[in-house]
Design a protein around this nucleic acid. Sequence first.
DNA 1: TAACTGTACTATTCTTATTAGTACAGTTAT
DNA 2: ATAACTGTACTAATAAGAATAGTACAGTTA
Lengths: 124, 124
Amino acid sequence: MFSLRLQGGLPLSEQLEARIAELIISGEMAENEKLPAVREVAKELTINPNTVQKTYRQLEQRGLIYSLPGKGSYVAERSQYSSAVLKRATEEFSRAVGDAAKSGLTKEIMTAVIDAVINKEGEI
Amino acid sequence: MFSLRLQGGLPLSEQLEARIAELIISGEMAENEKLPAVREVAKELTINPNTVQKTYRQLEQRGLIYSLPGKGSYVAERSQYSSAVLKRATEEFSRAVGDAAKSGLTKEIMTAVIDAVINKEGEI
DNA sequence: TAACTGTACTATTCTTATTAGTACAGTTAT
DNA sequence: ATAACTGTACTAATAAGAATAGTACAGTTA
């Protein structure tokens, strides 16, 4: 089961969605790998099954998972959601760039930040 | 008075804060320019004076405005908040870059997005 | 059949944002 | 001095949304 520290003011379902999406996109969860059952996650995290179900529903709408009633929920194949993920990420990043520009961040500063973050990501 | 279309799920006070901050940072509101009175804004936007006051309080904490009890609230001088604004913007942008990277956006794509957004910003 | 799975509801509780109302002190102009 | 502003600081009530609780149904698997 995935560990998860729920915190912050964000809705639980969104926090859980973000975490699972991260696991899927990063590849930590393999294609067609079975997700833990709704009730199991709820029990583990001591939250309500409805909250988990909501998360699964949203992930399915994003194309990250698919659900087989009676069987379970599974990680979708990359080809199914890859372009959607990139589109979503690009849109969000565009908005972030616009916000940064409004605050006076120059293109040079932004590229410097990107380098710094990318390098940090690559660390062990 | 500033126009403002309140929408979205975000708290009113935060929406208002973001809008006024934008006006100040962009220079649309000059240094030491007087902001409309709390009660006036509330009346104009048909929201509660307390909500506006909360907004002003938060803007003052960020150093974007200063309030003189009995006189009014005014746009702070750039030298007062400039570095704080850049720091905040850089932090938020770093987070955005990290999120984008997690979704698979490459450095090249990010810089391309920056160029696109910056050029669009410059348009008339 | 028993035990699992996802899904779909309704009702209730909790939390938080927002509203409503009042009050006080400083400023400004009449 | 007075009237009309200003920001500020509260408490109480309301509204909205998230989360919980509970139940039910249908498909799958051993």
